[in-house]
Amino acid sequence: MILIDTLSKSFGGIKAVNQASLTIKKGSITGLIGPNGAGKTTLFNVIAGVYPPSDGHVFLEDEEVTGLPPHELFKKGVMRTFQIAQEFSSLTVRENLMMVPANQSGERLLDTWFRPARISMEEKGLTQKANEVLDFLQLRELADELAGNLSGGQKKLLELGRTMMVEPKIVFLDEVGAGVNRTLLQTIGDSILRLNQEMGYTFCMIEHDMEFISKLCEPVIVMAEGSVLAQGSASEIKANNAVIEAYLGTGQKNRKL
């Protein structure tokens, strides 16, 4: 699905991502873990087109998409959520969802004037779709609330909802479970599993909660210092010595830094 080939990104002298190579298989929920500063979010940002990579390539289904701007990657089916949930705070929850699909007729100035019927039909379809998504995420009663007023966890759900408005090829989730209470985490986890199993979504998620990861992800990729350290099932990763070392450090290594 996605092939990342010796991707590097440096900021000044710091190599945030250093020749990372990995593949994400279609239909998988790939977990991406690693200590803070391992370059996970930077890797996400480079794939999603926020920054161009310093070196290396990204392929989406054999098509090179390296360094494309975010809105074009979106059209190719790449979606992502943010570590700190983002929303259009001055639009309602439903409007937030309806914002997502690209190329709506209402976006073309001429159509706004000359084809109002077509726009209203499209809007009706979108409203229905948004309502279905809200039902799925159990957010229906908040549909007309301004998204800025939602709690942190609800915003995370809304982010997940945004990916459901279109049929994405792959969804990158950046710490979707961070700062979310247990019950809501359960809802988020269940939603991800259902989307994966019923609708065939491919996910790649950054996560710190090992329990959450073990339940959802297969395979798990471990990053450290900008490169891929290990890859395997959750239980394999837990038993991997190199991984434990990367997380806990070995005195020696800390002294060198």
Binding site: M79, R80, E87, M99, A102
Partner: peptide, 30 residues
């Protein structure tokens, strides 16, 4: 209008707007 909402969305949260497929050049042009 949908275009107006895209503008509001872009003004509200540029990063998210870009990742929602809103074309920045179009918003700026309008």
């Amino acid at each position: 209008t949908r275009t107006g909402k895209s503008m509001r969305a872009y003004s509200d949260n540029e990063d998210l707007a870009l990742l929602s497929g809103i074309n920045p050049k179009k918003v700026i042009l309008i």
